[in-house]
Simulated assay, not measured.
Amino acid sequence: MASDDSFHRPTKFPPHVFDSYLGGEDPARLSRMAHDTAAALLARVREDPDPQVVARLISYTDEHGIDAIAELWAQASAKSLPGALWRVYLLRTLIRQDPQGVSLGYQRGAEVSHTIDQVVAGAPVPAGPDEVRELADRILHGLFVGDFAVALDRAAAFCRLVGVGYTSLADDADAADHVHPDRPRELTQRALRLTQLADEFAACARLWRRDALD
């Protein structure tokens, strides 16, 4: 991964930037470098999962910033190995930058959802900021040393729950919040993006199980 000094300071970005990362169309032709680096990294770590190496990979964006990962993988197809890795790092960054808001969405989603997503995601309820941060790290850890498809399924379930939670919170805000009139729209947009992300994680998990995630 890139080691330029400009990446040593983590890049902070507000929620609308997260939305723009996920909202763009995937390019028709992908850089071979993205696929090669993702495959080589994953194969090397899974062959010899040194705990210190895995820990550094999980926390890589804390030191170098999300841009260091984006430069390699952000333009890859959503249904590809680099695309999947990029989206998990992006989700982790979102959680770490707004753990309070994400945990609120997760808790609401767990309350109103009637699916097994809470069990699949693996976070307790109530899940506070510390719990959702820990879950993000566990999901990323699972990509490198556990069942890759299961880790993606957990990420998908988490995104679905938070998306459902944001939709419910948007309904509440629409009825009651006259101080922040844009809040319902922002929550609804975030819910749509997370639903999209969940679908992409689930698709990648299916491809991985068929040995077809390039």
Score class of each variant (00 low, 15 high):
Met1Tyr: 07
Gly83Arg: 01
Arg56Pro: 02
Leu161Glu: 02
Leu197Lys: 09
Pro51Gly: 08
Pro181Ala: 11
Lys12Tyr: 10
Ala127Tyr: 08
Asp62Pro: 09
Arg9His: 13
Ala55Lys: 15
Trp208Asp: 13
Arg138His: 06
Leu161Pro: 02
Gly101Met: 07
Arg46Ser: 11
Asp98Pro: 01
Ser77Ile: 01
Asp98Gln: 14
Glu111Arg: 12
Ala70Gln: 03
Val112Met: 07
Asp117Lys: 02
Arg133Lys: 10
Cys159Ser: 15
Leu197Cys: 01
Glu134Tyr: 04
Glu200His: 12
Asp19Tyr: 03
Arg209Met: 10
Leu152Thr: 08
Ser59Gly: 13
Gly101Ser: 09
Asp199Glu: 14
Val88Phe: 02
Leu104Ala: 05
Ala173His: 10
Asp177Gly: 12
Asp4His: 14
Leu135Cys: 04
Asp26Ile: 00
Thr61Gln: 09
Ile95Cys: 03
Ala110Pro: 08
Val88Arg: 00
Tyr21Thr: 00
His180Asn: 15
Gln75Glu: 14
Ala173Val: 05
His114Gly: 11
Arg133Trp: 01
Phe7Ser: 04
Leu192Glu: 12
Ile139Val: 15
Ala76Glu: 08
Ala110Leu: 05
Leu140His: 03
Ala127Trp: 06
Phe7Leu: 11
Leu41Ser: 07
Pro99Phe: 04
Tyr60Ser: 11
Arg44Phe: 11
Ser103Ile: 03
